[in-house]
């Protein structure tokens, strides 16, 4: 079996037509293959999320991760870029800009020579919120929300996200099937919030599949964190590839 993968930093066209840095990982097979936009978590465009991106390529998908903090610190190391964005008051990044950068990622994927024209999105932690945001804002073919907080629920008074509208209210706009992966011990999203989201998906007749793992909390997919739960993570990865296999392959 031919299994070569190419991973590299590229430039894509992000929100507002601006060129931004992105990490691209692609199987070298002629295709056609589907593509996945990876949305990184708050700590940034880091080594761990690049590894996550490469894992999707090894699994047979073109994958691209836009650097959401590129504008605040072009060329900086990922952790310095996150710190610079935070110091400049740019975090949280406005939703409009996230959607624009995700759209740029999807356009990049659909334009690759071996693309089958399909594009999905996946993200974890704040990236899970952003994956859901992208899926209710853009025409996509599949989405995976890994424990994204505040899709349901209102941030408390004084919270930096205070005032944002819960994304659950936009469920009717979901453009594609949604896979949700959650830790049963998580508090953001809590099991009650996950249940509320699923109830709304059912009410809107949206194709979805949710898995909540007992004994797992937030960030259970993060291999270098104490939150890592190998049993849940292995099962979750299987569901991720099954989901993309069902809706992005071919």
């Amino acid at each position: 079996m031919y299994d070569a993968v190419l991973a590299e930093t590229v430039t894509i066209t992000g929100h507002g037509g601006e060129p931004i840095e992105a990490y691209s990982a692609r199987p070298m097979a002629p295709g056609p293959v589907g593509g996945v936009v990876v949305i990184h978590h708050l700590p940034g465009y880091d080594r761990q999320t690049k590894e996550f991106t490469r894992s999707l390529a090894v699994g047979g998908y073109n994958a691209v991760m836009p650097n959401l903090y590129h504008r605040e610190a072009p060329g900086a190391s990922p952790d310095d870029a996150m710190a610079a964005a935070r110091a400049k008051g740019a975090i949280p990044i406005p939703n409009e800009r996230i959607v624009g950068d995700a759209a740029g990622g999807a356009a990049y994927l659909r334009g690759l020579p071996n693309s089958n024209g399909k594009a999905g999105v996946i993200g974890h932690c704040s990236g899970g919120y952003h994956a859901f945001l992208a899926a209710v804002s853009l025409p996509l073919d599949a989405a995976v929300d890994c424990y994204g907080g505040f899709v349901v629920g209102t941030p408390p008074d004084g919270h930096p996200l205070e005032g944002i509208q819960p994304l659950v209210d936009r469920t009717k706009d979901l453009s594609c099937p949604l896979l949700g992966l959650f830790g049963a011990d998580d508090v953001a999203p809590s099991p009650q919030q996950v249940a509320e989201l699923e109830q709304e998906l059912k009410a809107q007749g949206k194709t979805h599949e949710f898995h909540s793992y007992p004994g797992a909390g937030h960030a259970f997919l993060q291999v270098d964190r104490s939150a890592y739960r190998p049993e849940a993570a292995v099962d979750a990865w299987q569901h991720i590839f099954n989901w993309f296999g069902q809706y992005l392959a071919g």
């Binding site: 708050l42 700590p43 909390g217 960030a219």
Partner: peptide, 18 residues
């Protein structure tokens, strides 16, 4: 969330010269 420390949440301080 930290970049390097192992805890899920940490108190982080950046000393900067913008």
């Amino acid at each position: 969330h930290p970049v390097h420390a192992s805890g899920e949440h940490t108190l982080n301080i950046d000393f900067l010269n913008p």
